[in-house]
């Protein structure tokens, strides 16, 4: 029992020592985390923008010594709310380049003072950073979404494209064609219009045929060879007159038309 007791005491001391060391190490580790290299991020925005404008968002990420940090992910967010839900909506993502610059584009969709935040979420070595800038967005007197819906087929409801689409910017279009190109999107409904025009033209043709039927009736009515006479009940000139026609008509009259 004594021997055992000696061994038990040693084990207890070792465990206590290990716990003490662990207790000392924990704050150390926490301290080590808080001492990750600090970073700073700054956001650059245009001071003003118009509703619907495509705005370039820029953020520069620097380490503690002011050196740019490359290949770091930067998230651009903007506070927003819809119905009862509010939070930071992600409006862009970018990686920093050799100068520590992250660039993203964002289409402004609401007017007023817009806040844009750039966020670097940190890493094992680098501390997270967050920066914010604002811009004033004016309400332009135009629709935010114009001619965006639908399938755009070059040559059909969009200007015909020759070569890579990226080359078809307005500046490269020769001036005589520029007016036509500007007009083209407004003609986007013409395929539908063409189909409708074809169908309605055929309707008109059918109506014209009906007029022809009426005219043919007028031409042949005079001889009255093929038409029944409701008064006499006889078919003038008809080879096989229906003997019951007039009688049936009288029957209907006498019944008073009831079902």
């Amino acid at each position: 029992m004594r021997h055992t007791g000696m061994h038990g005491g040693w084990w207890l001391k070792a465990t206590s020592l290990a716990l003490a060391l662990l207790a000392l190490a924990a704050p150390g580790a926490a301290f080590a985390q808080t001492t990750a290299e600090p970073t700073t991020i700054s956001v650059a925005l245009p001071a003003t923008a118009e509703l619907g404008q495509l705005v370039t968002l820029q953020a520069r990420l620097l380490d503690g010594s002011g050196q740019p940090l490359a290949r770091a992910a930067v998230l651009f967010t903007s506070p927003s709310s819809f119905l009862n839900v509010s939070g930071d909506a992600v409006v862009g993502r970018a990686m920093t380049d050799e100068q520590g610059l992250a660039v993203a584009t964002f289409e402004v969709r609401s007017a007023g003072q817009i806040a844009i935040q750039a966020e670097f979420r940190g890493s094992a070595r680098l501390a997270p950073a967050r920066g914010e800038a604002t811009m004033a967005v004016g309400e332009a007197a135009r629709q935010l979404y114009v001619q965006q819906a639908g399938v755009r087929v070059p040559g059909l409801n969009a200007p015909p494209a020759v070569g890579p689409l990226a080359m078809m910017d307005e500046a490269s279009i020769p001036s005589p064609l520029a007016a036509l190109y500007a007009l083209w999107p407004s003609m986007s409904g013409w395929p539908i219009a063409a189909v409708l025009l074809t169908i309605w033209s055929l309707y008109v043709f059918v109506v014209a045929l009906l007029f022809r039927v009426a005219r043919a009736g007028g031409e042949v009515r005079a001889p009255a060879q093929l038409r029944w006479s409701s008064q006499s009940g006889a078919a003038a000139g008809t080879a096989e007159a229906s003997p019951g026609g007039n009688r049936w008509s009288q029957e209907v009259q006498s019944q008073g038309g009831g079902r």
């Binding site: 059918v206 045929l209 009906l210 039927v213 009426a214 043919a216 009736g217 042949v220 009255a224 038409r227």
Partner: peptide, 22 residues
């Protein structure tokens, strides 16, 4: 509404043409 219909071959032909188109 009868458009002077008397069943002449010409009327029949025209009406059937219109019906085929429709």
């Amino acid at each position: 509404a009868a458009l002077g219909w008397n069943g002449s071959p010409r009327q029949h032909h025209t009406l059937e043409r219109a019906m085929t188109v429709m």
